[in-house]
Design a protein around this nucleic acid. Structure first.
Lengths: 136, 136
DNA sequence: CCGCATCCGGCGTGATACTG
DNA sequence: CAGTATCACGCCGGATGCGG
């Protein structure tokens, strides 16, 4: 956990990055559109474990639909974050894994998950305080 | 890489998703639903600089609508990630800033942005290769 | 049989206009 | 200036069907 945190700090250290360069803001937004998607994050997080098949992912990510899984996998593959290996066999088998580019996101996503596990109780407490108002 | 092989073996173990504790998986998903939202990430990233007003945020985050900004700010405030300070004055003034809980996410979000800036060129290149950037 | 493209219903999302 | 109400559109999810 600390190792991961250290990596995060290392990545965040180049201080002046606190403000997003205006000329990069658009690119950042585009990337965030992909990476900042809940299913994308969940898929990458799940693929941390290694090679997985379509149905495995479908089962490992509760609540995701086949449509969204297919689309997310296609996007990730299209962006070069994951690799897709299809075996022309019977029964058919398709295996997904993190490409190097996706692996570079691994630590960050792991940090996010770590943060979620660490702070979810606190968030739920805050939600309870602010009022029941569970957002739609 | 040997590390990759190790991960494959880990995945081969019976049971999905060994990284995320099963009992926390649901919580992780819930948190990811919030944190894994593009606007949430953009708002937190923008608030890294410090205190900001509604219109400032609206202008600082290209493409966000008033509705989504209000909603996102309300959610973040509801979850205790940001603070909301309203001055009963004319003209009205509302200032938003990261709460300690949100500040704990700062480094991770900064890493994400850093990653986006570092790799967006590579992603765009992959997109061009995979097909004419055509999303069916 | 698994992987995934397609079709349709419902809801979240975004642009505009309006209120305090 | 800060935020809400309204409406039309586009995206998400579930079921179905097909190809390999």
């Amino acid at each position: 956990m600390d190792a991961v945190a250290a990596q995060v700090e290392t990545a965040a250290l180049p201080g002046p990055c606190s403000r997003i360069p205006v000329e990069d803001a658009d690119f950042v937004r585009q990337i965030m559109d992909r990476v900042g998607d809940k299913w994308t994050l969940m898929v990458i997080a799940t693929l941390q474990d290694g090679v997985m098949r379509y149905t495995e992912l479908l089962h490992a990510i509760p609540g995701i639909s086949q449509r969204m899984l297919s689309r997310t996998l296609a996007q990730l593959h299209h962006d070069g974050l994951i690799t897709r290996t299809a075996y022309a066999e019977v029964p058919p088998r398709v295996e997904y894994a993190l490409a190097p580019l996706g692996a570079s996101l691994k630590d960050i996503v792991a940090s996010l998950i770590d943060w979620a596990i660490t702070h979810h109780a606190e968030i739920r407490r805050h939600r309870a305080l602010t009022g029941t108002a569970d957002n739609h």
